[in-house]
Design a binder for these strands. Structure first.
Length: 275
DNA sequence: CACTCTACCTGTGCGC
DNA sequence: TGCGCACAGGTAGAGT
């Protein structure tokens, strides 16, 4: 399931592809499942995008932001894509057959197609004039947030750490896997109330989040048995219930926090005193 | 404000 | 072998 590092990895792959996505014209858009298109009708999306050219690629948190220039219109357009859990975006040969999970195909020049596949149909796509129409409610990107901004935003909350890290309006880009990994490496229990952290612990958490995400980005994301196999980043606790903690050898335990499967080392991540 | 629950989906993997 | 079912995940929106 793509979180920030996996989305970043997709962007890098698309940037380095040859022929590149940047500069490609959209000749047509096939919408195989219209539910994937949010905020407008798929016919509007098709009409607005035909003839457009990709000019840049970026992201905010887990949202991909593809900038386009329309042929006959002034002003920019942005295709915003959220892959949610099972979405995939790939550049393929134009003649490659769709499979049963293909939801959208952008037919391009130079014999290419940009394809959106998504078995679980959770992924969504928007066409807007300003990315903020979709991303305005997001907090700062987790990969580049400064310590000052992190600490400032942290200070206004009194919440359990795990749901706080997962809250995209607090910090954009962290999902279940990297939340568990960041809390493990920070030696913090997911149920700890954020306002109970010492300034040193807040600083440590910020450092760990950035370090974890940077490490994962450097190797193209996580590699989790049976779940996500894009990259080489190996997690310590997520999905490893019953396996020994790499630090102290205590068995990793799975608990439920905010309705989410949560993995901890009960030894290294001690329970907050109040519980 | 903080939290919980539900809905959205479908492939996987379990128990029987 | 095959059936049924719980479960996984991110987010929005409603409710406590």
């Amino acid at each position: 399931m793509p979180e920030l590092p996996e989305v970043e990895s997709i962007i890098r792959t698309l940037r380095n592809s040859s022929p590149a996505l940047i500069g490609r014209h959209i000749k047509a858009v096939d919408v195989l499942w219209s539910g994937a298109v949010s905020g407008c009708y798929s016919s509007d999306l098709q009409a607005a995008l035909e003839g457009s050219v990709f000019v840049s690629l970026g992201r905010h948190g887990k949202f991909l932001i593809l900038e386009l220039e329309a042929k006959n219109r002034s002003g920019k357009q942005f295709l915003i894509i959220h892959l949610r859990m099972t979405g995939r975006l790939s550049l393929v040969p134009l003649n490659q057959a769709v499979d049963r999970h293909t939801r959208l195909v952008f037919l391009l020049d130079r014999g290419l197609a940009l394809r959106f596949d998504d078995p679980r149909k959770f992924g969504r796509l928007w066409l807007v004039n300003d990315p903020a129409e979709v991303t305005a409610s997001l907090g700062p990107d987790a990969l580049s947030v400064s310590y000052n901004e992190f600490a400032e935003r942290f200070a206004v909350h009194r919440r359990q750490l795990k749901p706080l890290l997962l809250d995209q309006s607090f910090l954009a880009g962290i999902g279940n896997i990297y939340a568990d990994e960041s809390l493990f490496r920070s030696k913090l229990h997911p149920l700890t109330i954020s306002s109970d952290l010492s300034p040193d612990e807040v600083r440590r958490l910020h450092c760990v989040i950035i370090a974890v995400l940077e490490e994962a980005v450097a190797v193209n994301g996580a590699n989790i048995d049976g779940v996500f196999k894009a990259g080489e980043f190996v997690v310590n606790v997520y999905g490893r219930e019953g396996y020994p903690c790499p630090v102290c050898r205590s068995p990793v335990v799975k608990i439920r926090v905010a309705q989410r499967g949560t993995h901890i080392c009960p030894q290294c991540q001690s329970m907050p005193e109040k519980l």
